[in-house]
Design a protein around this nucleic acid. Structure first.
Lengths: 351, 351
DNA sequence: AGGTACCGTGGGAGCGCTCCCACAGGTGAT
DNA sequence: ATCACCTGTGGGAGCGCTCCCACGGTACCT
C-alpha cells in the first residue's frame, strides 16, 4: 500500500480514518462528530469520542484547510513600525481585547506589522495567498491602499478607526467627536477660559473628529475658537512636547490643554514643567485613551476613556460574522456596518 | 468533471496545474521551479516564471503543508501574561531580533502567550496538532513542563535562557555571570565599597548566574560578601522598589546597587528618591539589559548590555537548522548546542 | 557499436481532510 | 400496501500540492 516509503507512517499521528476504524463507523461520521454536527446519534457520538480520546486524535489543520478552503486564522494587521506598537498602549489594549474575544473560538490570531515597505510587500503576498480568513485593521491612515487591496481580494475585513465618514469597510470606532466634546466641556465646567488642543496625526480620521468636537464644544460654550490654540501633534510623546512648547510660545495665556492622546499629554506635561507651569494650578491637562500612562502620571491625568478592549471584541464579532457569511460575494456594500462606541471622561488631578 | 459544483471554480486562484499548462510543461517541473530546485534548464525555468507572472500564481499553503508535512511557521512562545510582555523591553527587543532574522525567510512567525492555565491548555493543543515546525521559548522558569512537552512531541525548539546548566534543549543565552561581574567590577572601580544586589526571579537560571557573578566579583575584589546586601526582586518595577526599600532599611550604609534588570533599577531609583538619596552621589546604580528605559532614565542608567537582538537572530539560526535537520529523531542530545553571547557594560551618569 | 551515467522532465500516487450523493431503515399519510 | 419523506450513515471524489519513479535524450566511456 504505502508508496512513499520512508515517510514514517506507523509512529505518526492518528488520522480520521483510523479513528473511524477504531469506533467502527465511517470516515464521514467521525468528521461530523469532530465538527459538532447535530446529525449524529448519541450512541455513535459517544463511540467516536471514546475512540478520539483513546487514540489521542488531533485534526490535521492543513488537510482541513485544503479541503474546506478556510484557514481558521485571522490577522491583526498593524500598519505601523513595531516600535510604535510597543510604545502606544492603544495597540496592546486592542490586542488584549481581540485575544480575549478569540479565546472562546478555534480561530487563531496572527499579529502582522506592516510599517516598512518591505513588510507591506510581504503582507500583500501573504494576503494574496489567502492565508487568513479575515483581517483586522487598526490605525489606518487616510491614503492607505491596504483596505482597497482587501476589498479586491474579497477578504473579509474590519477596520478600527474608519478612514473617513464614507468608509466602505465594516468599521468599529469610539465616538471621537463626543469624546472631545466631553473633554472640552469638562474644562469649561472647571472654569478654564483659554483651552488649547494638541491634535493627533491629521491623516487619521479620528484625530479630525476630535478637532471637530473640540471646536464645536468651544463654540457652544460661547468661547471664541482661535486656530492659534490648535497645534498638530502625532500621537507621540515627543510630538506632544514640541506642540506644547509651540503653544506656550504663541499663547502664553492658555490655561488648559486637551491632548489627543495620553502619550501626547505626557509630552505636553514635560514641556509645561520645563516652562515652569504647574498642573493643574496654572494649566489643566486632559488626555485621551485613559491608558496606564494616565493613571501613573504625576499628577494623574484626566482622560477620555475609549473602551478599547470592547472595541476589540466588537471587531472580532463583526469579522467572524462576515467570515461566516461569506456567501454573497456581491451583496456587500448595501448595509455597511459602522459601529461607534461611547466614550467616558475619567476625572483625575490634572484638571 | 467538476463534482463539488458550487465551490466556485473558474474565478478562483490559479493552480500549479494551470501554470504548467500555460508554460507547456508538467506539474512537477513547475513545482521544481517554485521551490528553486537546480535541476531545471534555464529555458524551462524562464517559461515557467513567465507563466507564473502572467497568471499571478501564488502557491496554496495548505496544500503544500499537507503534502510536504511542514507548515513553514514557527512560534515564539512567551510563557508570561501579556502585560509582562509589553512592560518589559526584553521581549519586544527579542521579537524585533527574531522578526529581522526571519524576514529573509519564507517562515512565518507566530506570537503565542501562555501566561494563564487556559492559554497553556490551548498551546498544548496547538503543539499537539503540529501547527508549527519549531518553537522559540523565551523566559522559561525552572519547573516549566513546556520544554519537556516539546521534546516528547519531537518538535524542534530553542530556548533563550536555559533552565539550568544541564539544559537539554538547544539554548541561546547571554553571559549572565560575566555581565554581573562587569557591573560589580565597574562599581568597585568607581570606589564603591558597599554594593547591594537586587536579584531577578530566583526561579530563572539567568538570575541565579547573575547572583553568582555578583558574589564572585565581590570576593575577587576583596570585599566581604554579605547576604544582607542581596534582596530578591522579580524583574518588575514594583519589585525593584520594594527590594530597594528593604535594602535601605537593612543596610542604610550602602553606596551602590546592582539591579538585575533596567526595569528593576527604575523601581530602585524611585525608592532611592523617596529616601532622599541622590544618584549617583549617594548611591550608584547599575541596571541590566541596556533597554530604552536605561537611556531615558533620570539620570541615565549605567547598564549591562545583552545583545538581545543578536540572541534572537542566533535562536532563529539554530532553530532553522534543527528544523532542516529533522532526520535523526534519536541522535539528539549528543551534541547539545548551548550558545552564550558576551555582554558589555554601558557606562552612564548613574554610576 | 554497445554500455553506463547522468541530466531534465512528466505524471501517478498520496497527504488527511470536507463535501455531498446514495442508501438503508423508520415513520406517517394516503 | 404504496408512496413520500425524514434521519443517520458510509464512502467516493476532490482540494492543490510534493515526492518519487520512470523515461527519453545526450555525453562519455569501453
Amino acid at each position: 500500500m504505502a508508496s512513499h516509503g520512508a515517510r514514517g507512517r506507523s509512529g505518526g499521528r492518528p488520522t480520521l480514518e483510523e479513528v473511524a476504524a477504531r469506533a467502527g463507523v465511517g470516515r464521514g461520521t467521525v468528521s461530523r462528530v469532530i465538527n459538532g454536527s447535530p446529525r449524529v446519534s448519541d450512541a455513535t457520538r459517544a463511540a467516536v469520542e471514546a475512540a478520539v480520546a483513546e487514540l489521542g486524535y488531533v485534526p490535521n489543520t492543513a488537510a482541513r484547510a485544503l479541503a474546506a478552503n478556510r484557514t481558521d486564522a485571522i490577522a491583526l494587521v498593524v500598519p505601523e513600525p513595531e516600535t510604535r506598537f510597543f510604545a502606544e498602549p492603544y495597540f496592546s489594549d486592542m490586542l488584549r481585547g481581540v485575544g480575549a474575544a478569540l479565546s472562546d473560538t478555534e480561530m487563531q490570531l496572527l499579529l502582522i506589522f506592516a510599517g516598512s515597505d518591505r513588510e507591506r510587500q510581504r503582507l500583500a503576498q501573504y494576503l494574496a495567498a489567502h492565508r487568513v480568513d479575515g483581517v483586522l485593521l487598526v490605525s489606518v491612515h487616510a491614503d492607505d491602499p491596504l483596505p482597497d487591496m482587501l476589498s479586491q481580494l474579497e477578504i473579509p475585513a474590519v477596520i478600527s478607526g474608519p478612514r473617513s465618514a464614507a468608509e466602505t469597510l465594516t468599521s468599529v470606532d469610539s465616538d471621537n467627536y463626543g469624546g472631545a466634546r466631553q473633554a472640552v466641556e469638562h474644562l469649561v465646567g472647571r472654569g478654564r477660559r483659554t483651552i488649547a488642543h494638541i491634535t493627533g496625526r491629521l491623516d487619521v480620521y479620528g484625530a479630525q473628529r476630535r478637532i471637530d468636537g473640540y471646536r464645536d464644544a468651544l463654540r457652544d460654550a460661547g468661547h471664541e475658537a482661535d486656530d492659534l490654540l490648535i497645534e498638530p501633534g502625532d500621537f507621540s510623546e515627543e510630538g506632544g512636547r514640541r506642540a506644547m512648547a509651540a503653544l506656550l510660545e504663541r499663547r502664553p495665556d492658555l490655561d488648559a490643554v486637551f491632548a489627543a492622546s495620553d502619550v501626547t499629554a505626557a509630552g505636553a506635561r514635560q514641556a509645561l514643567r520645563e516652562a515652569g507651569r504647574r498642573i493643574p494650578d496654572d494649566v489643566a491637562l486632559v488626555g485621551y485613551d485613559d491608558s496606564a500612562i494616565a493613571r501613573h502620571m504625576d499628577p494623574p491625568l484626566t482622560s477620555v476613556r475609549q473602551p478599547i478592549q470592547e472595541m476589540g471584541r466588537a471587531m472580532i464579532d463583526l469579522l467572524l460574522a462576515e467570515v461566516a457569511d461569506r456567501r454573497p460575494p456581491a451583496s456587500r456594500g448595501l448595509e455597511r456596518r459602522q459601529m461607534v462606541l461611547a466614550t467616558e471622561l475619567v476625572g483625575r488631578a490634572s484638571s
